[in-house]
Every structure is written in C-alpha cells, then in structure tokens.
Design a binder for these strands. Structure first.
Lengths: 328, 328
DNA sequence: CTGAAAGCGCTTACAG
DNA sequence: CTGAAAGCGCTTACAG
C-alpha cells in the first residue's frame, strides 16, 4: 500500500502541463516567467490535491538550496555529562532556525557503525545542508579548511583563530568578562590571588586566562596561574586571599577548587557559572542561548550572501555574587 | 579560489573508464559485478590522486534511502520549561541514531515565518526523511492518519491508541508502575489515599490513573481521584493518610501538592520523579532514554521492512523513597 | 566480465 | 507566454 510520494511529474500529468512548468509555479516563479494565471491555479490545485511536498535532496542537487541548516558537534549533540552548557545553545539554535524557517539536521553517528570519526568524509557530509554550525572546543583544521576553501557556509559557535581568522564564529567575550571579575576582586582589596584553569588549550580557556592576567597586571595585583592543581596550603602560606577558577563544560576545575577550599575562609569566583545552583557564586553568565541564535543568524546571512560581521563576540552578564569578601 | 570538487567523471577520465565503472568500484561493488582487478586498482589510484569525496546529496538522490530520521515535536524540540523530561529522550534518540548511522532532521519552524502550525503541510514535510519520530501529549489525528495510510514509517514516543492502534509507538508502562506505587502504600498500611492528577487527558495520564485505581481496588483500599485541586483540610478530616500525585512535564500538580502539604504529616508519592532533586520521594523512574533509543530502533526496522513489535511498553524503575511512612 | 544508458526529482537556461 | 532539454552527481538495472 506504500503510495509513492507525489512528484512534480504527477502534478504535471494531472494539470496537463509540463513538469518544468510545475517547477516554475511551485518555485514561486523566481525567474519572473510569464505564466497564464489559469495554468498557475490548475498547477496549485493539483499540487494540493496530491499533497505534494518537494524532495529536499533533489532540490538541493538541482539548486544548491534546501533550507536546512546542519549542526555538527564534536561529541554527542545531546551529551549527558555536560548537558547544562550545551542545552541553552541548542535552545537558541532551534529558536532562531524556526524563526527563519530553517530545519535543522543533526549530524550524528553517520559512519554506519556508530563510531564518530571526524575525518574528512564525516565532515563533508554536512554539505547536505545549505550551511552548517560547528561546535566543539577543538577544530579538525584540515577538514574544516577544505570546507571553508570551497566556500561552504559555516559558522563556529565559540571563537576560533585557526586558519588565520577565516572561520566565521559567534563567541563570548571571555576576555572582558574575566577581566571584570578580577577588577571586582581588586576593588574589594584582594592583592594576591590565584587563577586555576584546566590543562586543555582552547580559545575559551586562553581568552579567560588572558582577561585574568591582563586585568591583574593593570590593577597591580599578583595573580599566578596554575593548571590542574589546587595547592591550598601553599596559598595560605603565601598570603593568597582569593582564588578564581575556570569554568569548562566538564566543571572539573571548579569541583576541585570547591572541594579544596570547603573548610577554608578564602574568597572565590568562577569564570562562568557553577554547574548547579550556586547563584551566590561570583562570576558571569555566558550568553549561550544568544550565541546559538546569533550563530544561526550569521549562517543564514552567509548562505544568502550578505554577512554583516563574520566574527562576533557577545558580552557576558556579570554575576556579582557573595563569595568574594571585602578584605580592605 | 573555489576549486570545484572532483567527481566521478573526473576519476573516470583519468583512469580511462566510464563514470559508472567508477561508481561501481568506489561503491564497494555492492552488486557483485565482476571487475578486472587491474581496472579496480586504476580507479582507486585515480580517486586517491584527485582526493575524491562522494557528494552525499547526489548519493542520496540516486539511492532511495537517505539515512535521515525525522524528529517532530509538537512544541519546541528543545523546550526551556520542560527540559528535564525531554532531554533524556533526545539523548536516547541521538545515541541510537548514531549507532545505526542515521542523521536526524529536527522539524522546527518550517513555515517560513517561525509560526509553528501543526497542519497537514507541516507534518507532511517529515517525508523528506526516511521515517519520522513523533513526540507530544496529543496527536493531530487527521494529519498523522494520512502519513500512516501512505505507509510512511513513523513511530510515536509514548503510547497512542488513536487510529485503532495503527500508530506504532514506544511508550512506558505507566499502568504497572503506578499500580506498584499504590501496592507499596497498601503494604505499609495506608487504607485511605487520594490521587491528584492534572486535568488534561493523554494516554500517559489515563494509564497512570488506571494503574492507581485498579491497584487500589485490588488491595481493597479507598483512593479517590481529584483533578487539579488539593483540598488538604478535607482530606485530613476524612482520615486520608497518603496522597499520590501525577507527574507531567510541567510538574504543576506535583508542585501544588508539595506546597499544600509542606507543613503536614502526610505520606506522599509521585508517579514519576519530582522535577529536581528529591531522590527520597517515592515513585518511579520513566525510562526516557531507553524510550528514545527503542523508538529509533523500531523506526529503522519499519524503514528496512521487518518490524518486530509495533507497540512497545517499557518498564519503569521503582524508586522506593522515604516519603511514604509505615502506618501499620 | 565490462561499459553505456536510464533514472533519482528537481532547477534553469533556452527554444519556440 | 509556455514547454522541452539539459544537467546537478550519483546508483542500478541492463545490454553486450
């Protein structure tokens, strides 16, 4: 009983015109072709009667456009471990895609064995969509470069500096946000602080560190950077009064710091938001949802051909919190 | 600089064979075509030399299947208000889709104005995938019926009884799980309880109520059902010792009950899990992730043609909890 | 055993 | 004003 989905040829037969005419009518007559109103109506009626829906694959092969945006993540799109940081981005992406009438293709497994291989083939698959959003701490440069060079529209969610800035992105301004946190520490009298970060270099980490280091230098306070360790006893000996910790999607550094200073009277702040609850923790809010929205916006601009700003950095919202004490 | 990507015709020219031969060689020779090893090697070498990667759009147009599964939700796919109940399902869906080498198309906006209209046209769009998952408390019967009648493979996430059982689904066995909760109450000596549910009829609600009512009858205990109200004073006068409350994605009923009995010594249980935390609350865990996984599995079976079980009900995991006191 | 033809469902340039 | 042809890059029957 599987009735084959109707195609333009079926409509053509029913309306008594050629398949090409059907295409012109249903395509909204982009070419400005002159067309008898009567023919147009007959075609439309036939299409409606048959319940016609264009085949997006054929549309794309013939025209280069199918109103689908890809979303390629370098881990699962719906990760279980870092849901908090991913989900808001997805919400924003979906919101804006819907607003612009675009469907979303999630590029999941795809190699047929469930193994996620980020090789060229897997990434080239994204070409099924009109353009693609990419999301992940790191970039498989070689594969992405081919895409970029072939002028395939793509946007990274998160700042990227690979390929000499040829990768369009929508990121968060971690430098300013991190600097603001250090400024707050300085204004409350802290002169000797530590910054704990994870040992994984990605722009989001580098930017945070840069903001911290620059702000500390400017304020004239000491701020050493430590990676993946929390030598609390040493800090206390050295007269440290506050610790700032990186937020990553795993939350590892933050968890380590919290555990280490649980029973100690030390001010602390996080460069982002703690994994759960913790409204009182000093830090800032990453505009994830807005990033998702803007990334879609930029991608569609890229597809339609008049992108405004290829590299966007969105401001984070400061969260004053109460975990940084006044030590003046 | 946009260099056209090499295609099979380019390889054919280089290897001195026809384009079709290239297709056969690169396609792994599925048809069991006999082929001179020498030709095969020449084609492979040429492909390698040109850095050939197949165009997925053309591949999918030529072969009937496109290895894309649709996901149609009747609200946003990534809702902000009910994220807790949706997200695990999405995780399961993605997981299994990846395992089976299927991409996912999220049907979001799609009418070009961002307005979500669940009319026939919107739902018909799902045909662009090989099959589609549907998810939502209610069913737009007419539209779904057309899909089902045309043998388009689709699976509902959640039990459905519309269309005389012709809608394939993967749901949760709320009847048994709810009955088990009442059994626990009975075994702890409760003889007079109340069941609070929301005033919205969907299979997941109906099933819970049925489980509660049947178990109460069987255990010989009194259990009145109330919709959308929590007359605590009346209950206390009537000698009620425990209250059972429905869990829905909004969590409205549960919140109302918790607020009403906050300062009262009344046992309570929830037919599901409370919105956040609350590990101690008696109830059960809905196997959402597994539902997502199995729904994908069933959908792919439907697509490939040999579905095992068109109507699956998965068991929920009981959560004993500590909010039901022993009143014996 | 191998290659050339037809076709997947569309769009777009081009005749009439 | 309208239709028929060519083509997007592949796969899969089908000749030889």
């Amino acid at each position: 009983m599987t009735r084959r989905a109707p195609r333009q040829a079926d409509i053509a037969a029913l309306a008594g015109v050629s398949q090409a005419t059907v295409s012109v009518v249903l395509g909204g007559n982009q070419g400005g072709v002159r067309m008898a109103e009567d023919t147009r109506l007959r075609v439309l009626a036939a299409a409606e009667k048959l319940g016609y829906v264009p085949d997006p694959v054929a549309t794309r092969l013939a025209s280069k456009r199918n109103h689908m945006l890809g979303l390629y993540t370098f881990k699962a799109t719906f990760p279980t471990d870092v849901a908090d940081s991913y989900y808001p981005i997805l919400v924003g992406v979906e919101e804006q895609a819907a607003a612009l009438g675009q469907d979303l293709i999630l590029f999941t497994g795809a190699d047929g064995r469930g193994e996620r291989t980020h090789d060229e083939v897997a990434i080239r698959r994204t070409r099924i969509a009109d353009g693609c959003l990419f999301f992940g701490r790191h970039v498989p440069v070689a594969s992405i470069e081919k895409l970029v060079e072939s002028d395939f529209p793509l946007v990274y969610i998160g700042r990227r500096d690979e390929l000499e800035g040829r990768i369009p992105f929508v990121g968060a301004d971690y430098v300013s946000a991190s600097a603001a946190v250090v400024d707050q520490l300085a204004s409350l009298g802290h002169r000797n602080v530590r910054y704990v970060r994870e040992n994984d270099d990605a722009p989001s980490s580098t930017d945070r560190e840069r903001g911290v280091v620059e702000a500390a230098a400017k304020a004239g306070i000491e701020c050493r950077v430590v990676r993946d360790e929390v030598p609390v006893d040493e800090w206390l000996r050295d007269g440290v009064t506050a610790v700032v910790v990186e937020e990553t999607d795993t939350g590892a550094a933050y968890a380590a710091v919290r555990a280490a200073i649980a029973d100690i009277d030390l001010s602390y702040a996080v460069l982002g938001r703690p994994p759960e609850g913790g409204d009182e923790v000093t830090g800032f809010e990453v505009p994830r949802r807005e990033m998702g929205r803007r990334a879609v916006e930029l991608l569609v601009e890229l597809i339609t051909g008049d992108p405004r700003n290829l590299h966007q950095l969105l401001p984070c919202t400061p969260v004053p919190g109460t975990t940084v004490k006044d030590v003046r």
